[in-house]
Amino acid sequence: MNQFYLVGRIAALPQLQTSPAGWKTCHILLDVERPFANSHGSYESDLLSIEVWRGAAETLCATAQIGSWVTVRGRITGSRCEYEKEREKEEARIYNLVAEKIEYIHCP
């Protein structure tokens, strides 16, 4: 089963765009706190970029506020990317987080 669940705060306002196929899309930057303290006793967080599509993207762009707490359920997609390093072709895997459902928990 390919699913992820995240809870975090919106760190930057998403910008609505249109794909070449005509679908609405945006990326949301989510600040997600780690579930454990570091060696200094403080909790670090990760900034994760999440793809949002179609109606969910339009709704999110119309209602998002920086600092709002949201839950995101989605899937992880992967693709291969070729690049040249020191005149030799290398291959890397790129992973994207794609939202399937976003719900607000609290708005500031």
Rank of each mutant, 00 (worst) to 15 (best):
P35R: 08
D46G: 02
G55Q: 11
L13C: 14
G67I: 00
P35N: 10
P108W: 11
K24A: 08
L97G: 00
V32M: 02
L6A: 12
A62I: 03
N96M: 09
W23Y: 10
W53P: 04
M1S: 15
I50T: 00
S79D: 15
E33S: 13
G67C: 07
P14C: 09
C81A: 13
A37S: 10
A92H: 09
N2S: 04
G78E: 12
W69V: 08
C26D: 00
S39G: 06
E91I: 13
E88N: 12
G67V: 07
T18A: 05
L60E: 03
Q65G: 10
Y104F: 14
F4S: 07
T18S: 10
R80K: 15
P108Y: 05
E44A: 06
N2K: 10
E33Q: 14
E33P: 03
G67A: 05
Q15M: 13
D31C: 11
Q65C: 08
D31R: 13
T18I: 12
V70T: 01
R80C: 08
R87C: 03
A21F: 07
A37P: 04
R9Q: 15
I105V: 15
A21L: 15
R54E: 02
R93L: 15
E86N: 14
G74H: 09
E82K: 15
G22R: 02
R73V: 12
F4D: 01
R54M: 06
L29N: 11
E90K: 13
L47Q: 14
L47Y: 09
S79G: 14
G55S: 08
A64P: 05
N38I: 05
Y104C: 03
I28P: 04
M1C: 10
T18Q: 11
Y104I: 02
I50Y: 04
K101D: 15
I102L: 13
V72P: 00
L47T: 09
G74R: 00
E90T: 09
D46A: 05
I10T: 11
I10W: 03
K85G: 13
I10E: 06
A99E: 04
R87L: 04
C107M: 15
L97Y: 10
K24Q: 08
P20C: 12
S68C: 07
E86K: 11
A92N: 14
V70K: 00
L60Y: 00
Y43F: 15
L97R: 07
S49Q: 07
G8T: 08
E84T: 12
V32F: 05
T18G: 03
L13K: 15
H27Q: 15
W23Q: 09
V7K: 10
R9C: 13
F4E: 11
H106T: 09
F36L: 02
R80G: 12
G55T: 03
C26S: 06
S42V: 14
I28W: 01
Y83E: 13
I94S: 08
E100M: 07
E84Y: 07
L60P: 00
S49A: 08
A21D: 13
G74I: 03
V7G: 05
E44S: 03
L47I: 06
Q17A: 06
V52N: 04
K85D: 14
K85R: 12
S68R: 00
R54W: 02
H106M: 07
S49L: 03
E88A: 09
G22Q: 06
E91P: 09
E88M: 07
E82W: 12
F4V: 11
